[in-house]
Each structure stands twice: as structure tokens, then as C-alpha cells.
Write a protein that binds this DNA or RNA. Structure first.
Length: 465
RNA sequence: GGCGACGUAGCCAAGUGGUAAGGCAGGGGUCUGCAAAACCCCUAUGCCCCGGUUCGAAUCCGGGCGUCGCCUCCA
């Protein structure tokens, strides 16, 4: 049984999907107007892990993640760079998709864009007007917050506070300060669409209500995003969907913690975001991926290259055992030892960790423990058995966490013929006790970026270290 | 100011009532021609502080202190 923490009720409870055997997920995606930073990678990687776990547990997953490919920031950036807004969005969407691919993030089943859903959005707004949940002010349309008795519950806010907190801008034509725009008029020389209320663009929150209901139905299982989206975005989204459908859209609200750097939140507006391209120039994408999973998804993560590299050393230990075991066939014998039992029962414990609110941090601890059991088996002369189970267990864990190097990564480490020939020459020299020659070859290889590992089974070349 | 989260070893981090997972770094060892790598062993009588509840608290309650987030765009 999977248990999930729900931000609305602030409790962890058992997950029962709305439709047996199926899970529907809506995750708020990015606004593509700048390069994605680590903060954007976290929800993507976390939801990838969550989705894989559901699949592993036998669910059919329907996963939607949108692109907000038109809004004020895109328009502004479009002016600054003298690039049409649609081309700008397209460009950063492609880059985002490429970055996610490098992080082994499976694409969502649907990646709808606002610009492709304007009609649906207009219909949604019209529906809210028909239900007396919204009103027209000039060429704008606003949602009337006081029509929702439960408004503020998700973010823990009270309406009267919200009225006090914000000063009402009379020019905006809002009746109450807390009301928010569903449709905003735009100058004719800016991107926009004709609507019953005039030329303009949709407000930020309405797109998600319109798209989630279209792709997943009026009610779906999980709604995700960064914890910074709770207010106002998710609060408003919830109000919109309740306003039109008179039911709770999401069964669980699932929010990931934010990434900070030196204790300060990373954000595009602050300009302190660390770009994914830059990070992955220095560190293997899989190390970054697993680093984001090395912490529970709701815990804030203070990002540093040092921390990333430290974690990477642990991952590289996993890779070595994988190298060692990858060709090993499945074991058929039965060994009655504690370490053998631990190898046999690994998967149960591993999946249990993930059942408990997707605790990937604990799941990784199980992987490291499992490695230890495998080495115990090797020490006790059960090499084939231990490696066979290690391979099996690593593959099982890899289905969800996805940390093993792909074939490309392995081939670069093994197919350099020149290096292998040099290694053979060194072995020859060592056998002849010509250690001067042997050491010269070794330092040559080291300069080329190789590490020689003299194992009991002979030398091995590892590229990079 | 309001709401919320967090504070666990040198660093990162699990654990939400039963006697402190895991990773990195560090120390010792095995292996090795030497080294490196790998593997093995060790490393928090204590979980920000002070009270309280309990047979028992990192975990629950109260009060502090500190850091961060949201309240405007934000993953």
C-alpha cells in the first residue's frame, strides 16, 4: 500500500486511486523563457521516480505536464531578444526536453501548451462567468474569490487577511484585492487572442484548470509542483476547478521542497539559478539525477557542487559493482547465510521505502546495504552467487531510480584500443619485473585520464575518476 | 506582522514513542613490486536550548533561539 503526504489535509494517508489500476497525475511545468536550472530539474526527476514506482506497483499511469508558453515574462523576453514569442517558447521547450532526456526523465504522456489550448481556456472562463464565480471588468475577467467558502485552505490563509494584505488597485477594476485575473486584455501589437471579452491573454492559473480537466477529467489523483506554487497558483487553481465543477479536482496535492544555494532559494527572477547545462558539463547527468533523489522530495535541498561531487563518489561505487556483475547470470543455488538472505529480500525492502511517501533517500540506503551484502558473499567465496544477485537487485532498483550508466557511458570506458594495448604492455613488463617500464606506461595512461585498478583478477582500466 | 517548514556526527542525510539508516570525508587493516583503486573494520551514550508528559522521547506537549520559504513572478 502506497502512502502519500497531502498538502491540503497536511497528513500522510493511504493512496487509493480513483480508477482501480490507474493513476492520473498533473504536474505544473515550466515557463520556457530562459535556460532551466536545478530547481526545475527537481520536480521533473522526483515525478519521474514517483511515476516509475507506480508503474512498478502495477498501475497504468497517465501523466500530464504543461508548458506555460505564453505570459508576460515571455513577451518581455521576446522584446528584449527581438525574437517572436512563439519561437522563443519553442526554443526553450526543446532545450528543456533535451535536458530532461539527459537526466533520464521519461517524457510525460501529454505535454500540453497554453497556446494550443486557448479555446478550452476561454470555455472554462465562460463557464465560471455562467456560474457567477467570475465577473467582467472592462476587457478583463476576474475570479471572485469570495464565492469559494473554502478559499485559502490549501495555503493556510484567511480571506480577511488577504483583503488586508494587498492594496486594491482601483484601475484594475477588481472588486476585491484577492480576486485574480482569468483573462487580461493585451495591446494589439502583443501576442494574444480574440475572446468574448476582447483581445488578450489568459491569466496564469486558468490554464492548469482547463488542461488538467481536459486531459485527466474533472477529478484526478495527484497534483504536483514546487511548494512555492501553493500560493497563489494552486490555491487559485483549486478555486477555479471547484467553482466550475463543484468538486475537488485533485485527490492529493504533492509538493516538492525547493532548492537553495547558500541557503537562498534559486529562482530565475533572482538570477541565482545554476544552469543545468553548466552542471552537467562538470558532473555526469546521472549523478545529478540521483543527487536530487538522495534527499526526500519534501526536504529542502541546499545545492552545492561539493555536495554533488561527494554524492557522486558513492554512485561511482555502485557503478563499479555493476561493472563487476553486469555479465553475471542469475544464481540458481540456495545459500543459507544472512548476507544471502539480505540479497534475496532486497527488493521487498527497497519497494517498501518507496511505498512510504516515495522515500528515495531510504531506498538508496537499501541499495548501499545490498552492495555490502554482495561483497560479503564475494569474501566468502560465493562470487557468482553474490554477483548474480547484485546484478538482479541493481536492475530492479534501476527501474525506478535509474542510476546505472547507459551503454554509451560504458563503451567509452572500455573500447579505447590504444589504452588497452598499453595496459597489456604494462602487464608484460610487470611479469618481467621491469617495474620502471611498467610505471612509465602507468603514468602515461594516467595522463590520458585512466585509472588502473589492479584487482585480484587482473588489471582493469577505468576512464575518469 | 500573518501562515508554513526545517534545525540529527567534520559535511550531506534517513528516522515522528522502544533505545540513532545510508553516503562523503577521517582513522586502522587486507590486497599490491610500489602505488592507486577496490573491499573489510572503526568513528554521535546522543539528535539547537529549557521545561513537561511517559516505564521509555530525536520522535508527543509548552516556551525559547536560529535558518529558510510563502504572503508579488516563481519548480
Amino acid at each position: 500500500m502506497i502512502h502519500i503526504y497531502d498538502s491540503l489535509t497536511r497528513t500522510k494517508r493511504a493512496f487509493v486511486s480513483l480508477n482501480p489500476g490507474e493513476v492520473s497525475i498533473y504536474v505544473c511545468g515550466v515557463t520556457p523563457y530562459a535556460e532551466a536550472h536545478v530547481g526545475h530539474a527537481r520536480p521533473a526527476v522526483v515525478w519521474d521516480m514517483i511515476k516509475r514506482h507506480f508503474i512498478r506497483r502495477g498501475y497504468v499511469v497517465r501523466h500530464v505536464q504543461n508548458f506555460t508558453d505564453i505570459d508576460d515574462k515571455i513577451v518581455r523576453q521576446s522584446h528584449l531578444t527581438n525574437t517572436p514569442a512563439d519561437r522563443l517558447g519553442q526554443q526553450y521547450i526543446m532545450e528543456y526536453n533535451h535536458l530532461m532526456e539527459r537526466l533520464h526523465v521519461l517524457p510525460p504522456d501529454f505535454a500540453p501548451r497554453v497556446t494550443e489550448n486557448i479555446e478550452r481556456i476561454v470555455l472554462f472562463i465562460q463557464g465560471l462567468l455562467d456560474h457567477q464565480k467570475a465577473y467582467v471588468a472592462g476587457q478583463d475577467v476576474y475570479f471572485s474569490v469570495q464565492t469559494d467558502q473554502d478559499y485559502g485552505r490549501l495555503s493556510g490563509r484567511h480571506l480577511d487577511e488577504l483583503y488586508q494584505g494587498v492594496r486594491v488597485d482601483v484601475h484594475e477594476g477588481k472588486r476585491e484585492a484577492a480576486d485574480f485575473a482569468l483573462w487580461k486584455s493585451a495591446p494589439s501589437d502583443e501576442p494574444g487572442w480574440e475572446s468574448p471579452w476582447g483581445y488578450g491573454r489568459p491569466g496564469w492559473h486558468i490554464e492548469c484548470s482547463a488542461m488538467s480537466s481536459h486531459y485527466l477529467g474533472l477529478q484526478f489523483d495527484l497534483h504536483g509542483g514546487g511548494i512555492d506554487l501553493i500560493f497563489p497558483h494552486h490555491e487559485n487553481e483549486r478555486a477555479q476547478s471547484r467553482g466550475l465543477f463543484e468538486c475537488e479536482a485533485a485527490q492529493f496535492w504533492v509538493h516538492n521542497g525547493l532548492i537553495t544555494q547558500n541557503g537562498v532559494k534559486m529562482s530565475k527572477s533572482l538570477g541565482n539559478g545554476l544552469g543545468l547545462n553548466e552542471i552537467m558539463e562538470n558532473v555526469d547527468p546521472l549523478i545529478l539525477r540521483t543527487y536530487l533523489l538522495s534527499v526526500h522530495y519534501r526536504t529542502p535541498l541546499d545545492f552545492s557542487m561539493q555536495g554533488l561531487e561527494d554524492w557522486g563518489r558513492g554512485i561511482q561505487r555502485i557503478w563499479r559493482l555493476w561493472d563487476e556483475s553486469r555479465a553475471q547470470p542469475a544464481p540458481s543455488e540456495w545459500i543459507d547465510e544472512p548476507w544471502a538472505e539480505a540479497l534475496r529480500t532486497f527488493e521487498t525492502r527497497f519497494l517498501d521505502c518507496l511505498d512510504d511517501d516515495f522515500n528515495s533517500a531510504r531506498a538508496f540506503a537499501e541499495v548501499f546495504d545490498m552492495m555490502h551484502s554482495a561483497y560479503q558473499g564475494i569474501e566468502q567465496d560465493h562470487r557468482a552467487f553474490a554477483l548474480g544477485w547484485a546484478r538482479h537487485n541493481l536492475l530492479q532498483a534501476n527501474m525506478i531510480l535509474d542510476f546505472l550508466p547507459g551503454d554509451a557511458g560504458v563503451s567509452t570506458r572500455h573500447t579505447d584500443d590504444m589504452a588497452r594495448r598499453l595496459l597489456a604492455l604494462r602487464e608484460q613488463a610487470r611479469n618481467n619485473r621491469d617495474y620502471i617500464e611498467a610505471d612509465q606506461i602507468r603514468s602515461l595512461l594516467m595522463k590520458a585520464g585512466y585509472t588502473i585498478e589492479d584487482t585480484p583478477n587482473g588489471p582493469r582500466l577505468v576512464f575518469g575518476a
